[in-house]
Amino acid sequence: MRDVPAPAVPRRYRCALLCGALVLLTSCGWGAGGDGAEGGLPGVPTGVTAAAGSATTVHVMWNAVDGVGTYEVYRGGTVVKEVPASERMVDVTRLRPSTAYAFTVRARDAEGRLGPRSREVRATTPAAVNDGSAPTSPGDVRGRAAGSRAVQLTWSAAKDDRGVVSYDVYQGGTKVHSVGGNQRAAVVTGLRAGTRYSFTVRARDAADNLSPAGAAVRLTTPGSDDGRATAPTGLRAASHLADGAYYLDLTWVPPRIDGTVTEYQIHLDGRAATSLVYGADAPRDRAEYSFYAGREAGVTHRVRIRARLADGTWGGFSAERKVTLGAGP
């Protein structure tokens, strides 16, 4: 991030956050989009599940819906969480022990229109316990590819003096899935062919104590991925002068993938120069960004861009463009 000597300056028409560190945005419950709704509304989220994660939390997951900006998670008739389109899971917290809850999910598109509610799913939190001891790590963690876009993980039970309520699956350092304490397997989908992944599993008890991670499982999905399907397209680069300094002006078309891309990495002259992270208003049809490039005219730069995908990996690079500071269009 220190290759560019001054902070990026976003244009007025785009509000974005320039980060010094990359933010991993991953999700679980990837899958096919929901059924389309009438009148062009977002589809109905499918595959919705809910399971207690502790005495005060419930983990809700669902499949992707095409063309959404955010998801709304409801407890009964009340919105309790709003989730960006790049995610398909959420932990609903601050619940009561020994209580039954009902959850539904709705998709909201970029224009703010809400689709129909998903089917209702129910989960009951276990009784509260006074427990300061975390479970042991899950043992014998193993994994295998289940096609080119999914992996199946298995493990042996962790031990806890009050009992394990749930198991959390992590991809790298990010939680991507959760199953009940009586399960010893999980399937993580929405992955890329020919890509190396690392997974760990942690156990959670009713008091929300989390175990250390079990042994990491590292595996590569079969097949190949040349990156073209996940690369931004239509990249254009120009420059403009403002207050004695030159700025690079980029426009591109986001890749057509499940969900919305909320993070990009810009490479300048073969090295990472800056990261761009959007919120819920991430562009879907055309993205624009401008950043500081120096004060010397006539310098030629090479620029390309790539997107952070829903599975936490980087997609393919766009075509590289050359731009000379101060040159005409």
Rank of each mutant, 00 (worst) to 15 (best):
8 A>N: 06
1 M>C: 08
122 R>V: 15
171 Q>C: 11
215 A>I: 01
167 Y>L: 06
8 A>V: 14
89 M>K: 07
122 R>I: 04
41 L>G: 05
213 A>G: 11
30 W>P: 01
233 T>A: 12
55 A>I: 01
324 T>R: 13
76 G>L: 06
248 L>E: 11
192 R>T: 07
129 V>N: 01
295 R>C: 09
207 A>F: 05
293 A>L: 06
302 R>G: 04
195 T>I: 02
49 T>E: 13
124 T>M: 12
24 L>P: 02
98 S>M: 12
76 G>C: 03
153 L>K: 02
222 P>K: 01
300 T>K: 00
329 P>L: 14
59 H>Q: 05
216 A>P: 08
170 Y>W: 15
75 R>P: 00
247 Y>W: 05
20 G>P: 06
166 S>H: 04
175 K>F: 03
295 R>A: 09
292 Y>N: 02
49 T>R: 15
233 T>R: 11
295 R>I: 09
134 A>I: 01
22 L>D: 13
52 A>E: 08
73 V>K: 04
29 G>D: 07
184 R>S: 03
134 A>R: 03
265 Q>M: 15
281 D>I: 07
221 T>E: 05
44 V>H: 09
325 L>C: 00
196 R>P: 00
187 V>F: 03
132 G>E: 12
114 L>D: 03
196 R>W: 02
323 V>P: 00
90 V>K: 11
197 Y>R: 08
265 Q>R: 14
321 R>S: 05
57 T>P: 03
228 R>Q: 11
132 G>R: 12
73 V>N: 02
102 A>G: 04
114 L>C: 09
65 V>A: 11
317 F>Q: 06
104 T>E: 04
178 S>D: 08
308 R>N: 02
212 P>A: 08
8 A>D: 10
213 A>L: 10
297 A>F: 05
254 P>H: 07
134 A>G: 01
107 A>Q: 04
127 A>C: 04
89 M>Y: 09
94 R>S: 13
227 G>H: 11
65 V>I: 14
208 D>A: 15
199 F>E: 07
73 V>D: 00
313 T>R: 09
234 G>Y: 10
309 L>S: 00
317 F>L: 12
182 N>E: 15
88 R>E: 00
283 P>L: 12
61 M>Q: 15
78 T>F: 03
327 A>C: 03
70 T>N: 03
39 G>L: 15
161 D>F: 02
